[in-house]
Amino acid sequence: MTSKKQLLFAYGLAIHLLLVAIICYAAFPVTAPAEPVRIMYQTTAGKVLFDHATHAGATGYSLSCFDCHHHPMGDQNAMTSCSECHPAAVEEGEQPLTCLNCHNGKDIRDTPILSRTDALHKGCTDCHAEFEKGPVMDANSCSRCHVI
């Protein structure tokens, strides 16, 4: 058995810490910043962690934003998530809604849009192959990026 003093201490601890927790969760939620730090892609072939800050940051590889966010080139409107323009699955002849915000559907009917998987694979592997750094794609290299 515990004393009344110990019981009151436990009640006090529970109430005060609950208040602190509510304040912390409400006032300091873990939200994604405007420019991502890291992005975790949950794919059917395991997760892939992309370190956005290291690729884009001055202390990292100092890539230009438009090296990856390539369309429209030089326009801040290009600073969106890859999947905004490259959907998970692309039906033939279908254009993502994002394209139709600026383009007439008929004008871009014959413009091929890569699916997100193809776009990311191409974007990552082309760049790594060009600079000969980091994981390079070949027949047995899935597990160099994918945590399978």
């Binding site: 601890l13 810490l17 609950l18 927790a21 304040i23 912390c24 969760y25 300091f28 939620p29 873990v30």
Partner: peptide, 11 residues
């Protein structure tokens, strides 16, 4: 956020 997790867990 870590303080929040610790306080909520104990409480």
């Amino acid at each position: 956020p870590a303080l929040g997790v610790i306080c909520l867990s104990i409480s």
